[in-house]
Nucleic acid binder design. Structure first.
Lengths: 204, 204, 204, 204
DNA sequence: AATGAATGAGCCTTCATTCAT
DNA sequence: GATGAATGAAGGCTCATTCAT
């Protein structure tokens, strides 16, 4: 009897895992469309068409549009967090930590500006739509953790606020992204690196 | 004859002024609804209902939804700019400039968080909808000018970048607003002042 | 007492005439806009703007949009009828009647294609909207009278049906106009004259 | 592998056919409403209600209102062309061609006056709205082809213009329809036949 | 007499969501 | 599991008409 229960719950779990895998796979496809079109300007039909998914499938696997978007953003941000963490963990000593972090931020903003735009779009939504707040809080918590990791790595004085440091870094990151998106005042790759490097030198 | 021309043009101007006044009045009403609901979640019907205006009137005075929103944001931001400018112009010497600026920012963020939320919402829209870019560029230019004014007043070294200073200040301002809106980690009025004051001390 | 009645009715009539004159004047202005834009595609606001009239005035003098349009078409068609009648009355003998009629039709279609388009547009409306039928009937009666006048002038045999003759002539006239409007297969002025001349030679 | 490709393309084709069938079915329903109300006076809501279709469905199958109307008119006119062609192809010799053609025109105008009214309505629209011109040109081309077919069948002299013949025939056809619609001067079925028969005798 | 501000019903269209297959 | 046909509420916008001045 116990055995059967075990088997059953194992099967349920397997099924659940399979379903989660599928959800992740769909979300990854959907992400491609979302990055380009943005949250408010993308209908589920757009996502389905641009991702080779069927409209029904999106609703079969996801509760509603919010649910899908949350999964998509979640995937994206986890990648970003992983990249930053990897860059920071490879660094030894304050100078290297600052250099690696600046480099990682630069690469990310230059290569994937429209992906970051989506993050800022969702974070903005969360200010009006409470259903986005849990995921935004969670992801923003991860981002602050990265800043804390960098601070530790760089030997920042314990008086430095991670909250403040994150806020400033984010302000700069966002503005650079915006200027790239709107093609207003595009810094070269080297200039972006320099401005991050200098700022991190002061902040950490 | 000259008299008639003068009278005529006077009447045209009066009419035009009257129309502009009405536009401003409508925009102010509309602003109330927009502040609460946000751009994407506010239909013209919502605005009409919440403002006691008829749907047709909105289109009688404004080309389309964009046009109305742009007027609304414009009004709001001009007020903000005027307040900051007034605060800065009344200050003498570095310490006063910093104190006044910090105070003005604090008052504004504490008293009108949802108005600022709308600004961030529109700025976000502009990343996807080019029709918002001119107004966002213009207003953001005004904000940078304020920062520059503060820098001059505080006697900042000429090497300091107004672009960077604005970015960092905006990052902090935005995060504080977000935390107030989402009721996550609300700093007291005094704490907000202190964090602005400290930051300005470093930046300017 | 009788005198007073006479005076009163005279004043009423004078007033009424004045009003009719004004109506005619407005309708003539409005016609200019209508010719270009067509019935269904023209709002009263369009007419007001393009004719230098105020929106309120249109409704002050005319019951509704139908009423205005009816007046406009009426004016136009009376001009057309007058032109054709003049041309026919100046002609003596069968050959001249045919030549003058063909010439008059040619001039009208070449110079004022968009005016005729409006007539066909209204006649078309009348098939669905009964309020246009009286005026269309009346005007079409005038057109048939012209055909009859030409037939008399040309000494057509009494067996010839004016109804049929009008139908055929109108079919050709309309097709030529259509091809001019749609820029499909534009006959030269001389070709238009020839085809009318030949047809009239057969029909009358 | 080849098999799979075949199967796949077969399925795609079947699906496409099914969609086309549905479009045709919807268009036929819509036609019923359009015939009665006319183009400008028929909203998509009217069509949906009168046809038992949902509003969304109309847009699911057709790009926009134009697209739907074009399908409707297209269907109708193809039927008309098919009928005329069938009548003409069954006829041998000049007299039979004329008799069959006159009969077919008579039947069509008497039984389906309101369908023809719609054709004239759309043709009229095309004078103002260029988006209707391609379909109107195409269908009018078909009508001229029918006239040409009749001319060949009747052994008309090669000097006779199909363009002119079409114009005259259309003029008469339209006027008869108009008089039936407006209930002004309704010819009996036999009189309609006679007038067509006589005219064709002269024209062909 | 004349104006144009104001109204609100109605139009076309979009879209998340449901459901039969 | 997967599909896409079908729904209908809601959105931006137009326009004839009314009415206060």
């Amino acid at each position: 009897m116990n055995d059967m229960v075990t088997k059953l719950s194992a099967r349920v779990e397997r099924k659940s895992n399979k379903r989660d895998d599928k959800k992740k796979q769909i979300a990854e496809s959907a992400l491609e469309a979302l990055k380009v079109l943005g949250y408010a300007n993308t209908s589920l039909r757009d996502i389905a068409e641009n991702s080779g998914l069927s409209l029904g499938m999106l609703h079969y696997y996801f509760e509603d549009k919010s649910d899908l978007i949350i999964h998509c953003v979640s995937i994206y941000k986890k990648e970003f967090v992983a990249e930053m963490t990897a860059a920071l963990e490879m660094a030894e000593g304050r100078d290297e930590v600052i250099a690696h972090f600046a480099e990682a931020l630069t690469v990310s903003i230059v290569d994937r500006e429209s992906t970051h735009r989506l993050w800022y779009d969702i974070r903005n939504q969360a200010m009006f739509d409470v259903s986005f707040r849990p995921i935004v809080d969670e992801l923003e918590g991860n981002l602050i953790d990265i800043v804390a990791l960098a601070m530790r790595g760089a030997g920042s004085p314990p008086t430095t606020s991670r909250y403040l440091t994150y806020a400033l870094l984010d302000g700069l990151f966002r503005l650079i992204m915006q200027d790239r998106i709107t093609e207003k005042e595009i810094l070269t790759r080297d200039e972006v690196f320099k401005v991050f490097h200098d700022l991190l030198g002061q902040l950490l």
